[in-house]
C-alpha cells in the first residue's frame, strides 16, 4: 500500500516545527511503527535526518510510544497503543497526519518526542505507599476482597503514556493522577495515606501546569488501557472529603 505521511518535524524545543510530506510503501501486516522504521531507513539511505519518535517494548505495555495519528492519540483503534496498531487499519492511498502529543506540560524534544517527566514528579509527590523494604507483614494477613483487588488492578493498568493529557482539550492530567489515587486508595495498604496523597498529587499536578478537568471525556475514549473516568469522580470525592478534614 502507498501512503502519504504528513509528519511534524521540529529540530528542538525552541525551534518552530512544521508538517512535512513523505511517501512510503507499506505492507498491511506491518505495525504502524514498523512503517515508520521503513520510512526512516529510506531517509537514512538518502542521508536525510530520520524522524525521531519514541518506542520501546512494542507490545503495548511500556507506555513509551505516543504519536497523535489523524488527530487521535495512539490512532484510530480503540484500546490500542500506537505500537500495537497495524497498517491493516489503513487503506492504500491514505494520507495520515502524525504529530506529537501536545500539552504545555509535555514540551517537545524533537519531532515526535515529548518530555513526560511531569508524570514522574506527580508520582513522586505521593503516588506510593510509605513502606520500607522489610517492614511488610505476611501477604495474606489482610484479606482483600477479589472485586476490590480487581478494581484496584483496573486503575493500576495505567501505562503512563500521557494519551489522556494529549487527548484532553485542556491538557489535564486528571485521568493519570486519579488512576493512581484510586489504585492505592482502594487497597487497605494504601488507604492510610489516602487523604494526604490526594492533596499532594493534585497540588503537584497543578504546579506542573496541567489544565483543569471539564469532564469532556476524551481521555477515557483515547486511553489505550481503557481506564474509566470513574477514577476522576472518585478522586474528586476524595478531594472534597480531604478539604473538610481537620488533619493537615
Amino acid at each position: 500500500m502507498k501512503l502519504t505521511l504528513k509528519i511534524w518535524r521540529q529540530k528542538n524545543q525552541s525551534s518552530k516545527g512544521a508538517f512535512e510530506s513523505y511517501q512510503v510503501e507499506a505492507d498491511e501486516h506491518m505495525s504502524f511503527l514498523e512503517m515508520l522504521d521503513v520510512l526512516n531507513e529510506q531517509l537514512i539511505s538518502e542521508k536525510k535526518s530520520p524522524v525521531a519518535f519514541e518506542h520501546d517494548c512494542r507490545e503495548g505495555i511500556c507506555g513509551t510510544c505516543n504519536l497523535v495519528i489523524d488527530g487521535r492519540p495512539h490512532g484510530p483503534s480503540q484500546g490500542t497503543t500506537t505500537c500495537q496498531l497495524h497498517m491493516r487499519s489503513f487503506k492504500d492511498g491514505d494520507t495520515i497526519h502524525i504529530e506529537p502529543f501536545r500539552a504545555r506540560s509535555f514540551p517537545i524534544i524533537k519531532d515526535l518526542v515529548v518530555d513526560r517527566t511531569a508524570f514522574d514528579r506527580i508520582i513522586q509527590s505521593g503516588g506510593y505507599v510509605s513502606v520500607n523494604t522489610g517492614q511488610a507483614q505476611d501477604g495474606n494477613a489482610i484479606p482483600i476482597e477479589g472485586n476490590t483487588a480487581a478494581k484496584a488492578f483496573d486503575s493500576a493498568t495505567c501505562i503512563g503514556c500521557g494519551a489522556c493529557v494529549a487527548a484532553c482539550p485542556n491538557g489535564s492530567a486528571m485521568l493519570f493522577t486519579s488512576a493512581k489515587v484510586q489504585h492505592l486508595g482502594l487497597l487497605p495498604q494504601g488507604k492510610v495515606e489516602h487523604k494526604s496523597r490526594v492533596q499532594k498529587m493534585v497540588a503537584q499536578m497543578d504546579k506542573e501546569g496541567f489544565g483543569f478537568c471539564s469532564n469532556v471525556g476524551a481521555c477515557e475514549a483515547e486511553c489505550p488501557k481503557e481506564i474509566s473516568i470513574d477514577n476522576i469522580a472518585a478522586m474528586n470525592r476524595g478531594f472534597v472529603g480531604s478539604m473538610f478534614s481537620t488533619e493537615e
Binding site: A167, F212, N215
Partner: peptide, 25 residues
C-alpha cells in the same frame, strides 16, 4: 479556568477532531 486550560494546551491537532462532544469543549 478556560484561560488556564488554554495555556495548558499548546495547539490543536491537524489531522482530525478528537473525542469528546463539541459542547464539552
Amino acid at each position: 479556568m478556560a484561560w488556564k486550560n488554554k495555556k495548558a494546551k499548546t495547539s490543536k491537532y491537524a489531522g482530525g477532531r478528537g473525542s469528546g462532544s463539541w459542547a464539552s469543549k
